[in-house]
Measured scan of single mutants.
Amino acid sequence: MTEYKLVVVGAGGVGKSALTIQLIQNHFVDEYDPTIEDSYRKQVVIDGETCLLDILDTAGQEEYSAMRDQYMRTGEGFLCVFAINNTKSFEDIHHYREQIKRVKDSEDVPMVLVGNKCDLPSRTVDTKQAQDLARSYGIPFIETSAKTRQGVDDAFYTLVREIRKHKEKMSKDGKKKKKKSKTKCVIM
């Protein structure tokens, strides 16, 4: 069974824990209790493949930012979460993405942009803004509501699919490099 290491990042209060708990335990946590770091595991079937999701729910508070490099190193894919009623959390996505790329030393890291709290009427981040940002990053965008469960499975499952595509691409690139290195030079 394939294991996928997913990391949920975003500013404090955007609903990272609520999304994760909704996926794992099928219930909505409405009281806000700032996370330092929590880890969850769940076995699911995605596109006919049974897999184990190892999900790291991270601290959004700035005082825990020193811990970010460590979990970013171990993560295979990242859910970059903002709240649709919090423009600052949307603007912060850029910083999370840049930090992930720096730590992973790669421009090509599996990510999904997630606009959470889409059940709320007080939207300050337009869907088109988020779609445009995701398009500019070359990553999928999904709106979710941890409260109603809308888009929750889709967000995590899409990230797994992005990781699969990335692994497939990397193995193809690896095979191309191996083929090239088999060419021999004969000096007579």
Rank of each mutant, 00 (worst) to 15 (best):
D92G: 08
Y32F: 01
G10Q: 02
N86L: 02
D108I: 10
I84T: 14
Y4A: 05
Y157W: 06
T50C: 14
D126N: 09
G48W: 05
I36Q: 00
Q43S: 02
K169L: 12
V8K: 14
R135T: 11
Y32C: 01
Q61L: 14
I55P: 00
D57Y: 00
L19R: 02
E3G: 04
K117P: 05
G151A: 11
M72S: 15
E31D: 10
V29S: 07
V112S: 01
I100S: 03
Y71M: 15
K167I: 09
F28C: 01
K180G: 06
D154N: 09
A59D: 00
S17H: 01
T124D: 13
A11T: 12
Q61G: 15
K172D: 02
D153I: 06
A130F: 12
A11C: 14
H27F: 11
S17V: 05
P140A: 06
E91G: 07
S122N: 13
L79W: 03
T35A: 01
Q131P: 12
D153G: 06
R68G: 15
A146F: 00
Y64N: 15
K177W: 07
I139F: 06
R135M: 13
V160E: 08
R41C: 04
C51I: 02
L79E: 03
D108T: 04
R73M: 09
S17C: 02
D173W: 14
V7G: 09
Q25A: 06
T74I: 15
R73I: 07
D153S: 06
T183L: 06
N116G: 11
V7E: 04
R123T: 12
Y4E: 07
K88N: 11
D126Y: 09
I55D: 00
V112R: 03
Y4V: 10
G77K: 04
M72P: 08
D153V: 06
Q25T: 14
K5E: 13
K5C: 06
E168F: 04
Y4W: 02
D30I: 06
D33K: 03
A18F: 00
L56T: 01
G174V: 08
Q99F: 11
D38R: 00
C118P: 05
T87N: 08
K182G: 11
E162T: 09
Q70F: 03
R97S: 09
I24S: 11
Y40G: 02
R123Q: 13
H95Q: 15
D69L: 02
A155T: 11
C80Q: 05
H95Y: 10
S39H: 00
Y157K: 08
T20E: 11
E62V: 05
H166E: 06
S17R: 00
D154F: 08
K128Y: 09
T124G: 11
L56Q: 01
N86K: 11
D153M: 05
Q22S: 07
D119F: 06
Q61I: 14
G174W: 14
G15P: 02
S106K: 14
Q129C: 14
G13D: 12
S39T: 02
G12P: 02
Y96H: 09
D173G: 12
P110S: 05
F82N: 07
V44M: 03
V186L: 12
S106D: 13
E31H: 02
F82T: 06
R41F: 03
N86E: 12
I21L: 06
L23C: 14
D47H: 07
L133C: 08
D47I: 01
G12A: 02
M67W: 15
R102Y: 05
M111I: 09
M170K: 13
T20M: 06
R123G: 13
D57K: 00
G60M: 05
C185T: 12
I46M: 07
E63Q: 02
T74K: 01
M111H: 01
A66C: 14
G75S: 04
G151C: 05
G77W: 08
P121R: 11
Q131F: 13
L19P: 01
I163M: 12
D54F: 01
D57W: 00
V9L: 15
K178F: 14
I21A: 08
S136M: 14
T183I: 05
M67I: 09
L53H: 01
E49Q: 10
S145F: 04
D154G: 08
L52R: 07
S122R: 08
D30T: 09
V152C: 08
H166M: 05
R41N: 04
M111R: 02
V160M: 05
Y71A: 15
K177G: 12
D153T: 06
S106A: 11
S65V: 08
K42I: 09
K167M: 13
H166F: 09
M111C: 08
T124N: 10
E63M: 01
I46Q: 15
R123V: 09
S17Q: 04
V81L: 12
I24G: 06
G12M: 04
A155N: 01
K180M: 08
K182L: 06
L159F: 03
R149S: 09
V7A: 07
H27D: 04
E3H: 05
M111T: 04
K5W: 04
I93W: 12
G48S: 10
L53V: 10
A11D: 14
S122L: 08
S106M: 14
E63G: 04
V109Y: 10
R102V: 09
L6C: 05
L56P: 00
K117W: 15
I36S: 00
C51N: 04
E107H: 09
G151Y: 13
T58H: 03
K16T: 03
A130W: 12
D54W: 01
T74Y: 15
G75M: 13
S39N: 04
S136V: 10
K165I: 13
K169R: 08
V114D: 04
Y157S: 11
A18C: 05
S122T: 13
E143D: 09
R68Y: 15
D30P: 04
C185I: 08
L53P: 03
V125P: 09
S122D: 13
Q43R: 04
G12L: 03
L133Q: 09
A18W: 00
D47A: 05
F78Y: 06
D54M: 01
R73N: 11
T127N: 10
T2E: 10
R102F: 04
G15S: 10
R135G: 13
Q43W: 02
V29R: 08
V109M: 11
T87I: 15
S106N: 10
F82L: 08
K184L: 01
I84P: 14
E162Q: 11
Q129S: 11
Q22R: 03
L133K: 09
G75D: 01
I36E: 00
I46S: 04
E76V: 11
I36W: 00
I163K: 04
T183M: 08
H27R: 13
E107S: 11
D132F: 10
E31R: 03
G75Q: 12
I142N: 06
I142G: 06
K175M: 12
Q61D: 15
Y4R: 06
T35V: 00
P121A: 11
R164C: 10
V14P: 02
D38F: 00
N116V: 15
D132T: 07
D33L: 14
D33G: 01
V112A: 05
E31V: 03
I24C: 11
D57G: 00
I55L: 04
E98D: 10
V114S: 02
Q129V: 05
V160L: 06
Y4M: 11
Q25D: 01
D30V: 06
D69A: 05
I93M: 15
V114A: 06
M67C: 03
Y71C: 15
S106T: 14
S39K: 00
Q22A: 06
Q22I: 02
V44E: 01
M188T: 12
G15H: 02
E62A: 04
I84K: 12
R135L: 11
